[in-house]
Amino acid sequence: MKVERIKEILDAEILAGKEHLDIEITSACGSDLMSDVLAFVKDQALLLTGLVNSQVIRTAEMMDIRAIVFVRGKVPDKELIDLANQKEMVLLTTKHPMYIACGLLYSSGLTCGGEG
């Protein structure tokens, strides 16, 4: 599933990386615990989170995650957006809460998550 499609499903706004909407996503991880994200290894993964500090970008960088969705309408500060641009990541924000956002993506076919 392309990031473009994820943006449509979640009715999300683009905060960074609008030139990278064709990135292909094959799995997703929804968490506010970055250490749990760091235990999750999947290729071409999407991160959904309610956290908006710079360590979200760092965590994604270490994991080779290139697309992040902030849930519950959260918008990070400019510093974080700049860091994401520097790392060529896509940042989206959706009004949906975590549970609904994950559910919408799952029921649209993005069903790969977790370990194994």
Binding site: D32, L33, M34, S35, D36, L38, A39, T49, L51, N53, Q55, V56, T59
Partner: peptide
Amino acid sequence: EMGFGAGMGLPNIKK
């Protein structure tokens, strides 16, 4: 509150 301190640091390093 910043998303760390979940007690996964050293286990993740070992992993």
